[in-house]
């Protein structure tokens, strides 16, 4: 790194602060809007400093919301996001294990089939997937929210690449030590993939939390709404009246869990992406 002195350091910091301010302003705006009353928002200019109604707005959002209380939607989102994340990790690590360490007929075919699904995101296969989910009676259920999104070619590919960097001698040493395949998986492969699992957890959690289209289709009952789609559902259609402070409070609450995941797992996340020592 080039060390800067004098005016240079001030300029650097100023531009960084400016950049942060630009990025943070919409979030600040949302926060302010969640602490004032409806009238304050509608009457221009919109206030830029927090008002005194924060507690009542958040309490209203949490307990009543517009269609469904935010607490319910947050719970639904958490179940869906964790379900998809853990499901994806479990399935992809096991399939990568099978593809890398076992020689069975059609092994490469399996790999390419998994790889091919990368080209078929939910949006492309949404109609048939909906049809299948509906026929299985998965509408308005957690299984319906989770299962269709649970397979992940990306994660499988990532684990495959990771396993391929683990030297063959590791497997051979384990075989001589008398560890069977699943024992090897639990005792050696899983701990060695720890940081990668953490990195993947962060990415996948945010991916799952932000699911919008699929939950919108599969849930019709407000009790099953997830928070990301729920915010959109709060918007008025036609001449309806929108409760903006409550919507903004909901938006703030929806942001908290992904932020918490990133903050608490940042260390492991970075380690997982950069660590190379095996």
């Amino acid at each position: 790194m080039v060390e800067k002195r004098g005016a240079g350091i001030w300029f650097t910091h100023l531009s960084l602060i400016l950049g942060i301010a630009i990025i943070c302003f919409p979030i600040w705006f949302t926060f302010v809007a969640s602490t004032v009353t409806q009238e304050d928002i509608i009457r221009p200019p919109m206030p830029l400093l927090p008002g005194p109604h924060m507690f009542e707005n958040y309490a209203k959002a949490w307990n009543e919301g517009v269609n469904a209380p935010v607490s319910t939607m947050l719970f639904n989102s958490t179940v869906m996001a964790l379900g998809i994340t853990f499901g994806k990790i479990l399935i992809s690590i096991l399939s990568a294990f099978a593809i890398v360490y076992f020689r069975f007929p059609g092994r490469m075919l399996c790999f390419w089939l998994i790889f091919l699904t990368l080209m078929l995101p939910v949006e492309v296969r949404i109609v048939p997937t909906y049809e299948v989910a509906a026929n299985l009676g998965l509408l308005n259920s957690y299984s319906g929210l989770i299962l269709p999104l649970i397979a992940s070619a990306t994660a499988t590919f990532l684990f495959r690449q990771l396993f391929m960097t683990i030297p063959d001698e590791m497997v051979e040493a384990a075989r001589i030590d008398g560890a069977g395949p699943m024992r090897f998986f639990w005792d050696i492969l899983l701990p060695m993939s720890r940081t990668n699992i953490a990195a993947l957890f962060v990415i996948l959690f945010i991916f799952s939390w932000n699911q919008y289209l699929w939950p919108l289709l599969i849930t019709t009952d407000p009790e099953m709404n997830t928070i990301v789609m729920g915010i959109k559902q709060m918007f008025p259609s036609g001449d309806d009246w929108a409760d903006w402070p409550v919507i903004m409070a909901t938006a703030m609450l929806a942001m908290l869990p992904p932020v918490a995941v990133v903050v608490f797992m940042q260390k492991l996340f970075v380690k997982g992406l950069v660590e190379s020592e095996k």
């Binding site: 030297p167 001698e169 590791m170 040493a173 001589i176 005792d187 050696i188 720890r194 020592e277």
Partner: peptide, 14 residues
């Protein structure tokens, strides 16, 4: 038998 490998093959997390 017991084997000693060229790259040692120690389990890195143990």
């Amino acid at each position: 038998i017991a084997m000693v490998f060229q790259n040692y093959a120690l389990y890195p997390h143990m």
